[in-house]
């Protein structure tokens, strides 16, 4: 693998810096807006507000997996260690966000559908995505040889990302209980303006926060490689 050059010694870079704390404050600000400055939806009550973190986590997971797939392709092409390190970092954050999606969803499903879980196409495919992303990280942990680890996991990372369009389109392709998209669809968003603004703010805040998580995880991967080189 090509060895990357760094302008600063990696050990001098903190995992959490000013930008990270800015992202944390962004998320807290979004939550304050959701809780105190966004109206309840009349038919669902307070549970509708779960939507803002649930969809933000889903979009973050999709984006993180898109990064995994792109950097995996770059690695297979150029054999650049930085691409593999970024794929690993984004993969871990993708698993976190998918876990948030699968955890917050049932808290909405129970009062609205009357059940915590149903084997609906959208839910089942998302669960499959969680298993594939978890397998990606398990595979990485199981192979010691860096080149082989990067090659095998790149293939799995690309395959995991291929599920995303199926998950997004599953509500159109199958008869499902899961609601159709109300913002990311060909027509105009069907949210009232103040709810739409809250949605946009929360998505941007969580995407920025997840980007900062990937950045912190990347720096951790650098530290680990330095430690491995030193031993």
């Amino acid at each position: 693998m090509t060895s990357p050059t760094h302008s600063l010694p990696p050990t001098s870079r903190p995992l959490f810096d000013g930008l990270f704390f800015l992202a944390v404050f962004g998320v807290l600000g979004a939550v304050v807006r959701i809780v105190f400055f966004t109206p309840y939806e009349l038919a669902q009550g307070a549970a509708q507000k779960i939507y803002y973190i649930h969809v933000a986590a889903a979009l973050s997971a999709y984006l993180a997996l898109a990064v995994v797939a792109t950097t995996s392709i770059v690695f297979l092409w150029l054999r650049d260690a930085r691409a593999d390190r970024l794929a690993e970092s984004a993969g871990e954050v993708a698993l976190l966000c998918t876990t948030v999606v699968l955890t917050t969803g049932p808290f909405w499903g129970k009062p609205i559908w009357g059940t915590w879980w149903t084997w609906d196409a959208r839910l089942t495919l998302t669960l499959f995505l969680w298993f594939i992303t978890a397998s990606y990280l398990v595979l990485r942990g199981a192979i010691d040889e860096p080149m082989m680890r990067a090659r095998y996991s790149s293939v799995l990372g690309i395959l995991a990302a291929l599920l995303i369009p199926f998950i997004h389109l599953s509500v159109y392709m199958f008869r499902t209980l899961h609601p159709d998209p109300i913002v990311l669809k060909p027509d105009r968003p069907s949210l009232p303006p103040e709810m739409l603004l809250t949605f946009v703010i929360s998505v941007l805040a969580f995407l920025f926060f997840c980007f900062m998580l990937v950045r912190a995880r990347y720096r951790l991967a650098l530290l680990r490689e330095l430690a491995e080189e030193a031993t």
């Binding site: 009550g45 307070a46 649930h54 948030v100 955890t103 808290f107 609205i112």
Partner: peptide, 26 residues
């Protein structure tokens, strides 16, 4: 409007714990 506040709070607490737990692990 149904009272679904408990589910709303529980979802936010669960998400907060997951994100915080990950930051602590990093």
């Amino acid at each position: 409007t149904p009272d679904t506040t408990a589910y709303y709070y529980a979802a936010y607490v669960a998400a907060g714990l997951l994100y915080t737990g990950y930051v602590v692990s990093l």
